[in-house]
Amino acid sequence: MANAPERFDAVFLPDGVSKISYEHPMNDPSTAVFRIEREDHTIGNLLRMQLLRDKNVIFAGYRQPHPLQHHIELRVKVKQPSSLSEESPVTALIEAITDLDQELNLLQDRFQFAVGRAQAAQSETG
């Protein structure tokens, strides 16, 4: 087992590695390829589908380059190449994350409320 990869490699972010980094291929500010460390299809597909709801996003796709490399690449292209303070792949991703976080926040509240009500009903009958 000397050359077996460590089990926690898929999970543990090593020191000095940033969770997310990106570059603009061909110096095109309207396109960015994000490299997200220690994540997989869970986050990749979630972000991709949310980004595709954005009207300014004309391409969003992700891939896991290799099953033993624990990062994903997310490629985003937006309509208008412009200064960073306006629409850019980075703002698109930030807003996609905000939207998803709010969606999950709402879901969390609704779930906890539903469970609370179900448990109250059970304790009344039982």
Partner: peptide, 27 residues
């Protein structure tokens, strides 16, 4: 089971927030 769901949503939210924080820092 209900706590699994609640924890799962929290884990997912933490992931997203961590991602956003480090994306801002990176920029």
């Amino acid at each position: 089971a209900p706590v699994v769901v609640v924890n799962a949503i929290s884990v997912l939210r933490n992931k997203l927030q961590e991602l956003q924080t480090s994306l801002r820092a990176e920029t």
